[in-house]
Design a protein around this nucleic acid. Structure first.
Lengths: 229, 229
DNA sequence: TTACCAGCTGTGATATTCCTGAGAGTTGGC
DNA sequence: GCCAACTCTCAGGAATATCACAGCTGGTAA
C-alpha cells in the first residue's frame, strides 16, 4: 500500500511541508501544488493515486477543481481538507464516490488512516472490514470498535486514535513527542503530560480484560505495544 | 449485481459528475452523454444495462429518445430524471414497461436503490421481494415496509431512507456528513443536526419494539447499525 | 539507602457532542 | 380550503470528552 503517489494541494506552506514530510516518511511518493491550476496540471500529467486537496485555494475552490478533473476523465479519489467552521454548502457533496474529507486542524494519524482507507477501497475491491490485530487486541477500523480477549471496550475518540497509533507501530517504542505529533491536532500546544494521562486512561480500560498488560512503558524513552512472539 | 454498465445522460455537468463518481464507486461501469444524439449512439454501440436519462435535454426530450431507441430494437431499461414540477401525464407516458423515474433534486441513495431494483427485475427474472435483514430488522424494499421482531413499523419517507442507508452499511460507522450526502437531496444545504433529529425519530419508533437498541452512536464519529455476531 | 525524576492517576474546570421537545413552515390528501 | 403528516430549525440540558494540575509512586543511580 506504500509507494503510492500522493498529490498535496494547499496554499499554506507550513501545512504543505508538514504533509509532504510526513507522507514521504510514511513511504509515499509526494508532489505538491499551491493552487488549482497547478493541481490540475499535476493531476493530469503525474497521475497520482490520491489527491489531498484544500477546499479553499486562492484561485479556485475544491469543487471547481474536482469538477474540472472529473470532466477531464481524471477519477483520482480526493481527500478534502476543510476548515472546521466551513459553511455547510462548501462541505455538502464532498463524501460522494470514493472521496472523503477531514477538518483542519487535523492530526497526522487521522490523515494517514484516511488515505489508507481510500487507497484500500480504490485499489482492491475488497469488502472485508479492515482489522488491526496485535495479540489479544483487535481494532475494527470500519466499526471503530476495540476488543481485548473478545471483550468489547468502549473508547473515546482520542483514546481510540492513540491506541490505533500504538497498535500500528507495535513492537516499536514511540516517544511522547512522536505520539503528540501524530495523534493530536497539529496546532495543539499543550504539554506532553497529556499523553501520560491518555495512556493511563487506556490502561484503566484495557488491563482489566487483558491477561497481560498491553502498553509497556520504556522509561525515559516512550511507550510500546509488544506483540507476543 | 455490480459491474453492470450504466449510461448517464444529462446536460448539467455537476449532476453528470455526481452520478458518475457515485456509480463508479458503487462498482458500476459508467459512460456519459450530454445530449440525445450522443445518448442514442452510446446506447446502440456500448449496450449499457440501464440508462439514466434526463427528461429535458437541449436537443431532444426523453420521450423522443426512448421512442427512437425502442424503434431501433434497443430495450435497455431507462431511469428518467425529471424536474419535480414536470406535468404528471408526461411522466406517466414515459414510465411504461420496466422503466422508472426519480425527480430532481434526488438523493444518491434513492438513485442507487432504484437502479438496483431495475437491474434486478431485468437481469434475473426472480419475483422474490428484495429484503434487507440486519438482526431483528427487516426492510422490504419492494413494499417499502419495515419490521422489527416481526412487528411492522410505520416510517416517513426520510426515516425510511435513513434506516435503509444505515442497514445497507451495517457494521460500518457512517459520519453525519456521509449520511447527509447520501440520504438527503444533493442540493440540501441545512445543518447536520437534521441527522440527529431523524436518528432520534427512528429510535423513538424502533426501540419500543426491539429487544436491543438498533442504532448505536459512536460519539465524535457517527452512527452505526450493528449486526449481531 | 536516599534523593531525584519520570511516570502515574485522581480531581475538577471547561468544552464539545448529542439528544429531544417545541414550534414554524410546507406539502399533499380529502 | 382545511387538516394531517412531514420536514427542518432551534435551543436547553444531559452526557461525555478534553486537558491542566498536583500529589503520589516507584525505578534508578550515586
Amino acid at each position: 500500500m506504500s509507494d503510492a503517489k500522493v498529490l498535496v494541494v494547499d496554499d499554506e506552506p507550513n501545512i504543505r511541508d508538514l504533509l509532504s514530510a510526513s507522507l514521504k516518511f510514511a513511504g509515499y511518493e509526494v508532489q505538491t501544488a499551491i493552487n488549482g491550476k497547478q493541481a490540475i496540471e499535476a493531476a493530469a500529467s503525474w497521475q497520482p493515486d490520491i489527491i489531498l486537496l484544500d477546499v479553499m485555494l486562492p484561485d479556485m475552490n475544491g469543487f471547481s477543481i474536482t469538477k474540472k478533473l472529473r470532466s477531464m476523465e481524471v477519477t483520482t479519489p480526493v481527500l478534502f481538507l476543510t476548515a472546521r467552521d466551513e459553511t455547510q454548502d462548501k462541505i455538502t457533496g464532498l463524501t460522494v464516490g470514493g472521496d472523503d474529507y477531514v477538518t483542519k486542524p487535523f492530526s497526522l494519524d487521522e490523515i494517514l488512516a484516511r488515505i489508507q482507507a481510500i487507497l484500500r477501497r480504490s485499489t482492491t475491491s475488497d469488502l472485508q472490514a479492515s482489522v488491526i490485530k496485535v495479540g489479544e487486541l483487535e481494532i475494527n477500523e470500519d466499526a471503530h470498535e476495540v476488543s481485548v480477549n473478545s471483550q468489547m471496550v468502549d473508547l473515546s475518540p482520542t483514546e481510540y486514535q492513540l491506541l490505533r497509533y500504538l497498535a500500528v507501530n507495535a513492537n516499536r517504542v514511540l516517544t511522547k513527542a512522536q505520539i503528540l505529533d501524530h495523534v493530536w491536532e497539529y496546532d495543539f500546544n499543550g504539554e506532553m503530560g497529556i499523553v501520560e494521562s491518555y495512556v493511563s486512561y487506556l490502561r484503566k480500560k484495557l488491563d482489566p480484560v487483558s491477561t497481560t498488560p498491553l502498553i509497556t512503558t520504556k522509561r525515559g524513552v516512550g511507550y510500546m505495544i509488544k506483540a507476543p512472539s
